[in-house]
Amino acid sequence: MRSTDADILATAESWRRAGRGVALATVVETWGSAPRPVGSHLIVDQEGRFLGSVSGGCVEGAVISEAVEVIAGGKPRLLEFGVADETAWQVGLSCGGRIKVYVEPID
């Protein structure tokens, strides 16, 4: 099984050891009916290949493109998604919740 958040961390390590650029995204805060709980992980490599989930699909696309930039830039970012940010991000959580996602490179 490669579905639990800890399995995802094990995969992040093996990706990095194989020489791939890797970023780890973690849900750090949620408000309202967020689809994935705090602590949920998504990992992304420099090609945009990913594993895991931070929102059950709603904002994954935006997180992945930010993560690819984080891998290139080497600095962590804190992202916030929600209904209010819909126009800014072109994405939103259909459930009406809001989430904060911390994206960091694995060095």
């Binding site: 961390l9 094990a10 780890l24 694995i106 060095d107």
Partner: peptide
Amino acid sequence: MRLDLLSTLNAERA
């Protein structure tokens, strides 16, 4: 995250 931290975290879980 530093790779050595990630590695320790994974080792603890294992």
